[in-house]
Simulated scan of single mutants.
Amino acid sequence: MYSFGKTGTHSKTPARLTRPEFGYLFAPPPADEWVCLDLEMTGLNPKTDHILSLGAVKISRTHGTFSIDTANALSIICKPPIMPATDTIVIHGLRPMDVADGVSYDEMLAQLLPFLGARPIVGFYTQMDLAFLNALAKPFLGAALPNAAIDVSLLDQKLRKQQNRNPDAPIDRRHLHEMLKTERIPALPAHDSLNDALMTAMLFCQLQHELQAS
């Protein structure tokens, strides 16, 4: 585990839920627990593009100390309905042969949803990842995921506003790798959703620590 020194919503279970065994998703979120999630997709449009891989790690805070559970991380390669075009390999690093033996989206959700539980989801531009997941979750569950979303780029923006002597000055959102460099978090190999989830989780812990200290 990585440790660093010293947010969630609750929805009622919808009546239209078609898989009641996943009703725990709608329970109150556990205190001081999160899941950091990253997806690799064929593109940026959840209506026309597809998820290729998923990486996720759990984060917890005990007595003010953040920990990332790397020993029980989730890493899944999916088999999309359409194989990725070869010219997109430079973006996600996955070849058709890499995803040909991947799991179905239903199997991916069957593994991911218990991992998530009711925990808030941490990520970089989380709304994009949730748009892709909900395109699958809605027909699978009968409802969208109720988990709260925490975007590290917004945490970074909040921290820099607090540190800025001019609180009215505009603060732009930064790219993940720019934030990692600023916080001196090591860069892991690219084109790997689990590596991105780990780096984002470390960034989340560091930003939360600095926000608490500021």
Rank of each mutant, 00 (worst) to 15 (best):
residue 147 N to L: 07
residue 190 A to H: 07
residue 10 H to F: 12
residue 179 M to K: 01
residue 116 L to V: 07
residue 91 I to F: 14
residue 71 A to W: 00
residue 111 Q to F: 10
residue 41 M to Q: 08
residue 149 A to M: 12
residue 121 I to W: 05
residue 81 P to R: 14
residue 98 D to M: 09
residue 139 P to K: 12
residue 107 E to S: 15
residue 7 T to N: 14
residue 141 L to P: 02
residue 28 P to Q: 10
residue 179 M to Y: 00
residue 41 M to G: 11
residue 40 E to S: 10
residue 171 I to T: 10
residue 201 A to K: 02
residue 202 M to V: 05
residue 44 L to I: 07
residue 163 Q to V: 01
residue 15 A to G: 02
residue 148 A to N: 09
residue 200 T to F: 05
residue 7 T to I: 09
residue 110 A to Q: 14
residue 74 L to V: 00
residue 147 N to A: 13
residue 53 S to K: 02
residue 44 L to F: 14
residue 76 I to N: 00
residue 95 R to I: 04
residue 209 H to T: 10
residue 57 V to S: 07
residue 174 R to N: 08
residue 71 A to E: 13
residue 108 M to S: 14
residue 123 G to P: 00
residue 30 P to G: 13
residue 140 F to W: 12
residue 200 T to E: 02
residue 154 L to R: 06
residue 48 T to D: 06
residue 50 H to C: 06
residue 8 G to E: 10
residue 102 G to D: 03
residue 112 L to G: 08
residue 197 A to P: 03
residue 180 L to W: 00
residue 143 A to F: 02
residue 85 A to G: 15
residue 26 F to T: 06
residue 210 E to H: 14
residue 10 H to L: 06
residue 148 A to F: 05
residue 155 L to N: 03
residue 99 V to P: 01
residue 116 L to T: 11
residue 33 E to M: 12
residue 189 P to M: 04
residue 3 S to V: 09
residue 34 W to H: 10
residue 125 Y to W: 12
